[in-house]
Measured scan of single mutants.
Amino acid sequence: MGMPNRKYADGEVVMGRWPGSVLYYEVQVTSYDDASHLYTVKYKDGTELALKESDIRLQS
């Protein structure tokens, strides 16, 4: 078993793309699913969504 190939840690605050949009919002990573390679993130309004790594970026 190798290390999970994840870029962002639980609790890390990053920018997540809103689905169907080009806009990124501040989100907190809450979990990562090794099987689906999706991150569960929480937006400031409390919305929780699963995002692909390509829809997440570090805060500038």
Rank of each mutant, 00 (worst) to 15 (best):
H37N: 14
V27Q: 00
L58R: 14
R57W: 10
T30W: 07
K42F: 07
D55T: 02
Y24G: 01
K42A: 09
M15T: 04
G16H: 04
D45F: 04
G46E: 06
A9K: 11
V27W: 03
R57G: 07
V14T: 02
K7F: 05
L49Q: 07
Y39G: 01
D34I: 06
R6H: 05
K52P: 14
M15R: 06
P19M: 05
A9P: 07
D34P: 10
A35P: 05
W18A: 10
Q28V: 15
L58A: 15
T40Q: 10
G11M: 05
D45L: 02
V27M: 12
V14Y: 03
D34V: 08
Y25K: 09
Y39I: 02
Y8L: 04
K7M: 10
V13T: 11
V27T: 03
D55K: 02
T47W: 07
Y39F: 02
M3D: 14
R17A: 04
D45H: 03
D55W: 05
M15P: 01
G16W: 03
K44F: 10
M15D: 05
K7L: 12
E26M: 09
K44C: 13
M1I: 15
P4W: 04
S31N: 11
H37G: 15
R57I: 11
V13N: 08
S21M: 06
Y43N: 08
E53N: 04
S21R: 07
S36A: 10
E12S: 08
A50L: 15
G2Q: 09
Y8N: 01
D33T: 03
S54L: 06
V41Y: 00
T30H: 09
S36N: 13
V13S: 06
V14N: 00
V22H: 14
M1G: 15
A9E: 09
A35I: 11
N5S: 14
V22T: 14
Y43S: 10
Y8G: 01
S54E: 14
L23P: 02
Y32C: 02
A50Q: 14
S21C: 09
T47D: 03
R57K: 13
I56W: 00
E53K: 02
P4M: 09
N5Y: 08
V27G: 10
E53I: 04
A50K: 15
W18I: 09
S31T: 07
R57H: 09
V14C: 04
P19G: 06
P19W: 05
S36Y: 08
L49F: 15
R17I: 07
N5R: 02
K42C: 09
L23A: 10
E26N: 05
G46Q: 04
Y32H: 02
K44Y: 11
I56D: 01
S60Y: 08
D10V: 09
V14D: 01
Y24C: 05
G2E: 15
N5W: 05
A9D: 07
S54Q: 12
V29K: 00
V27N: 00
L23F: 14
P4F: 07
R17F: 03
L58C: 12
Q28F: 08
K44M: 13
K44S: 11
V29G: 00
T40R: 10
G20I: 02
V22M: 15
Q59E: 11
E12L: 10
W18P: 10
D45Y: 03
R17P: 06
R57D: 06
M15W: 11
A35K: 13
Y39D: 01
Y24F: 12
I56V: 04
S54K: 10
G16I: 15
V13F: 13
A50C: 13
D55Q: 07
G11E: 04
L58H: 14
T47M: 07
D34Y: 08
A50G: 07
A35Y: 12
E48C: 11
S31E: 06
S60H: 12
Y24M: 06
G20P: 09
Y24K: 01
D10S: 06
G16P: 01
G20C: 08
Y24A: 02
G2T: 07
H37S: 13
K44I: 11
R6K: 05
G2L: 07
D34W: 06
P19Y: 05
V41R: 00
V29P: 00
A9I: 08
M3L: 13
N5V: 13
Q28I: 15
Y43C: 13
D34Q: 08
K7Q: 08
H37V: 04
V22D: 15
K7N: 05
P4H: 11
V41S: 00
K42V: 14
A9C: 09
V13Q: 08
L51T: 02
L38K: 09
S21H: 06
E53S: 05
M3Q: 15
R6W: 03
G16V: 14
V14F: 02
V13P: 03
T30N: 06
E48T: 13
M1N: 15
G46F: 04
E48Y: 12
I56Q: 00
Y25H: 09
G11C: 07
Q59L: 15
G16K: 01
M15K: 04
G11D: 05
Y32P: 00
D33S: 07
T30I: 15
L38E: 11
G16M: 07
L38M: 13
Q59T: 13
E48S: 10
Y24I: 03
E48A: 07
Q28K: 10
Y43K: 07
